[in-house]
């Protein structure tokens, strides 16, 4: 997939994954990977970037004697998703047109 497209897409996928309920590294990867390729090495920089930009929050919780970091979405993150959806909607119109013209 085009590197440019993928960069923005992965950020939004991770945001969407934590939008309903807070989640952690392993779970995020396994929720997303059926839809788009994602590995531990790609997830970490995304999470760090999202926290830095204020689009996600993180908190560390002790579970069974070890630490786990949970991530949750912020208001700014929700805005990011909304903007992205808006863009995709416009994109979809063009896509439908291409399919109709080329396929039909």
């Amino acid at each position: 997939m085009d590197a440019q497209l993928k960069r923005g897409l992965l950020d939004v996928c991770v945001l969407a994954c934590i939008s309903n309920k807070e989640s952690y590294g392993y779970k995020i990867i396994h929720d997303i990977s059926p839809y788009i390729e994602m590995s531990e090495a790609t997830l970490y920089p995304i999470l760090r970037r999202l926290v830095e930009k204020g689009e996600a929050n993180s908190r560390t919780v002790e579970i069974d004697g070890r630490l786990r970091k949970y991530y949750s979405i912020t208001y700014k993150g929700q805005q990011h998703i909304n903007e992205f959806i808006e863009q995709i909607r416009e994109f979809n119109q063009a896509y439908q047109y291409i399919l109709k013209s080329y396929g039909g």
Binding site: Y24, G25, Y26, E40, Y44, R48, R66, L67, R68, K69
Partner: peptide
């Protein structure tokens, strides 16, 4: 340190599975 603890967590989670 953050990265190493991230992978500590990842190793433990994978092992749990």
């Amino acid at each position: 340190r953050e990265i190493l603890s991230y992978f500590d967590e990842a190793f433990a989670d994978y092992r749990d599975q």
